[in-house]
Amino acid sequence: MPDLLVKLSWSLLCLAHLVPAAALLQPSLLVPLYDVDPASGAGLLLRHRAALFLAVALVCAYAALAPDGRRAAGLVVSVSVVGFLVLYVGAGAPAGALRTVALTDALLLPPLTVAVWSAWRA
């Protein structure tokens, strides 16, 4: 698999996780992203989630540059993307802001497949 495709896949995964990570520094983003009041208890939990998304994004950025970190990064980002999709479907695929999150994660499945496949085939 071409290295450029692998690096591009990791970069897309990184960028996708930076969007919700931005709510860590700008809590008002929780309203358009999740339709949640940033001052609520759920808002606090989602800001913590934003911090975890920052960690996922950093791991993906590292994996784009360092092949030795790709297996562990593949596990982390797979839990993020696939985990949410499983939970979303299990909840009956609710409409609203969560549908956008699910669609984004579904669009991440091809680059995730490329990234994980390349990490584990070596």
Rank of each mutant, 00 (worst) to 15 (best):
Ala23Gln: 09
Lys7Val: 10
Pro111Glu: 01
Cys14Phe: 11
His17Phe: 10
Ser28Leu: 13
Phe84Asn: 03
Ala93Leu: 14
Gly92Phe: 08
Leu54Gly: 07
Val82Trp: 09
Ser78Thr: 12
Ala55His: 05
Ala119Trp: 15
Ala57Gln: 08
Phe53His: 01
Arg71Lys: 12
Asp37Pro: 09
Leu108Lys: 01
Leu75Tyr: 02
Ala119Val: 08
Val89Pro: 06
Val86His: 12
Lys7Met: 14
Leu54Tyr: 09
Leu44Pro: 01
Ala16Pro: 14
Arg49Leu: 11
Ala106Trp: 15
Leu52Tyr: 13
Tyr88Cys: 15
Ala93Thr: 10
Ala95Cys: 09
Ala51Gln: 08
Ser28Phe: 15
Leu30Gln: 14
Asp37Met: 14
Val86Asp: 00
Val77Arg: 00
Trp10Lys: 13
Val86Tyr: 12
Thr113Pro: 15
Val116Pro: 15
Leu103Phe: 13
Leu18Thr: 01
Pro32Thr: 10
Ala16Leu: 10
Ala91Ser: 05
His48Asn: 08
Leu8Ser: 12
Ala42Met: 11
Cys14Ser: 06
Val36Leu: 14
Ala93Asn: 06
Gly69His: 00
Pro67Arg: 03
Ala106Asp: 10
Asp3Pro: 00
Leu103Trp: 14
Val36Trp: 15
Lys7Thr: 12
Leu52Asp: 03
Leu33Glu: 12
Gly43Ser: 02
Leu5Gln: 00
Leu52His: 02
His17Asp: 08
Leu24Ala: 03
Val86Glu: 01
Ala97Cys: 07
Phe53Tyr: 14
Leu12Asp: 01
Val19Ala: 05
Leu5Glu: 02
Ala61Glu: 05
Leu112Thr: 00
Ser9Ile: 14
Ala16Asp: 01
Ala42Gln: 09
Pro67Trp: 08
Pro2Val: 07
Leu103Lys: 06
Cys14Leu: 10
Asp105Ser: 01
Leu4Cys: 07
Pro27Tyr: 06
Ala21Glu: 05
Pro2Met: 15
Met1Pro: 15
Asp35Phe: 11
Ala50Cys: 07
Leu75Gln: 03
Ala97Phe: 06
Pro2Cys: 13
Lys7Ser: 10
Lys7Phe: 11
Phe53Asn: 05
Ala93Lys: 08
Asp105Trp: 07
Lys7Leu: 09
Pro32Val: 04
Leu65Ser: 01
Leu87Val: 01
Ala51Leu: 12
Leu18Arg: 04
Ala21Phe: 09
Leu54His: 04
Gly69Phe: 04
Leu18Ile: 01
Ala72Glu: 00
Leu85Pro: 10
Val82Pro: 05
Ala64Cys: 15
Leu18Ala: 06
Val36Lys: 13
Leu75Pro: 02
Ala97Tyr: 03
Ala72Phe: 04
Leu65Ile: 12
Cys60Gly: 04
Leu65Met: 11
Arg47Pro: 03
Met1Phe: 14
Ala51Ser: 03
Ala51Pro: 09
Val19Lys: 00
Asp105Gln: 09
Pro110Ala: 03
